[in-house]
């Protein structure tokens, strides 16, 4: 028993090694009856063992590692591959239509690209001609204005009358 007394003295001074402390724990927990002088300390060493049994609540271990991570990985993989498959399918469906270009002329489907091009050129030329014809009167007005300006300069009219005349001509 002297050994235990000695160890206890060292223990309270903080001088025991881990092995010696284990020896004390062993003595107090395995013997049901200890020396009367040691009885008071039994609670201490029993308590240490009891405290070590306390575990983190179960929910905690679940929270420690985000357990949903692998599941989320599969959800992501499936949804992304689903989106990719849909896109591929959509492209595949549209592809043959893109290869056969056609034009609609007068409500008729034209598959001959040469004919369509010629037709378009013809129409564009017609539009050009129409625009040119439309601009012709304006060119005439320009010539008329020029002539009037020259004749006024020769006859010495004031600017104001020139202006009013010009307006009249344009209005006519």
């Amino acid at each position: 028993m002297e050994r235990i007394n000695e160890l206890l003295e060292k223990y309270f001074k903080g001088e025991t090694t881990l092995a010696q402390e284990n020896e004390l724990k062993q003595y107090f927990t395995s013997n049901k009856i200890v020396e009367a002088e040691h009885e008071a300390y039994r609670a201490l060493f029993v308590a240490f063992g009891e405290e070590k049994k306390e575990t983190a609540p179960i929910s905690l271990s679940g929270a420690l590692v985000p357990q949903h991570k692998p599941r989320r990985f599969w959800i992501k993989t499936f949804s992304y591959s689903g989106i990719a498959a849909t896109l591929l399918l959509a492209l595949w469906i549209q592809r043959p239509q893109q290869e056969n270009d056609y034009a609609i002329i007068n409500g008729r489907r034209i598959d001959d690209p040469q004919y369509a091009q010629e037709y378009a050129e013809k129409k564009l030329n017609a539009v050009h001609e129409m625009v040119q014809n439309g601009l012709k009167p304006l060119r005439d007005v320009e010539i008329l204005k020029k002539n009037i300006r020259n004749s006024h300069r020769n006859s010495g009219y004031k600017n104001e009358t020139i202006k009013s005349d010009k307006t009249q001509i344009i209005n006519n």
Partner: peptide, 21 residues
């Protein structure tokens, strides 16, 4: 990685809990 994290950190959870408590 998550497996190593599981084995190394998760095993400490009881000790960590006791310290915090």
């Amino acid at each position: 990685n998550s497996k190593q994290f599981n084995t190394q950190i998760l095993t400490l959870s009881d000790k960590l809990f006791r310290l915090a408590k």
